[in-house]
Design a protein around this nucleic acid. Structure first.
Length: 220
DNA sequence: AAATGATCATAA
DNA sequence: TTATGATCATTT
């Protein structure tokens, strides 16, 4: 399936609103896991399947032909996000080549199809309900902060200071570990510019920020 | 309760 | 191994 426009994709996504994951799984003959302990990405992958994303696990938006990234967003019944939103891996090598423009973060956040899902922990996976999907582009003000968060992090890492970055770093975009476990290490540079190993990191959008997006979108 | 740090499945 | 999809589990 290919889309001609973001609006067409949005319409398809919105046609799923109000259905539970169990209903949709039955319709598409998919198996719903009893819990997400061992399949944390199942919901996102199922939605990608329903919408026909072909981008698989490439470092680019889910729908490259229209430049749109899809993100599921678990919310409680009050509409508050329950988790942060993973954006991309944090580059830890060849930092001199990394610019904001053209970065994976910039490309993915340029246009996002948010799919909120009522997903409180006590709701069985099959009972979780798709809320109303919506498109978002960062405002100029939001972009300034996100870009600052990105560039400050890149500068730290270029200086071999990745070890000094923890989850408190960044107003909107934070950096946290993103790995199979604490033994899955990847290459970076130390303060002397020498190669060394560290935990892979990911960029995440803070839940306080995605909460604002929801408020901004649905309060009108 | 919210935030931080750790972890799981899968594809290429 | 590194990227995707994220949520889990523990600490604050």
């Amino acid at each position: 399936m290919a889309y001609d426009s973001a609006q067409q994709l949005l319409a398809k996504a919105q046609s799923l609103a109000g259905f539970s994951l169990g209903e949709l799984a039955q319709q598409y003959q998919a198996q719903v896991p009893a819990n997400l302990l061992r399949e944390k990405g199942w919901v996102g992958q199922f939605l990608e399947y329903l919408l026909g994303s072909q981008s698989a696990s490439l470092a680019q938006p889910d729908f490259p032909e229209i430049g749109v990234e899809m993100k599921t967003l678990p919310i409680d019944t009050a509409g508050k996000p329950l988790e942060s939103t993973y954006v991309s891996v944090v580059p830890l090598t060849d930092l001199a080549e990394i610019q904001w423009q053209g970065s994976v973060v910039q490309q993915k956040l340029n246009h996002v199809l948010w799919i909120p899902i009522i997903a409180e922990k006590n709701l069985a996976i099959q009972e979780r309900i798709i809320a109303m999907p919506f498109l978002w582009r960062p405002s100029p003000q939001e972009l300034i902060i996100i870009r600052k968060d990105f560039e400050e992090a890149m500068e730290m890492i270029a200086m071999g200071q990745v070890g000094k970055i923890d989850a408190r770093f960044g107003e909107i975009l934070q950096i946290r570990p993103k790995a199979a476990n604490n033994k899955a290490l990847t290459e970076t540079i130390d303060a002397k510019g020498k190669k060394c190993l560290t935990l892979p990191r990911g960029f995440y959008l803070r839940p306080q920020f995605t909460r604002l997006l929801l408020q901004n979108h649905f309060s009108n």
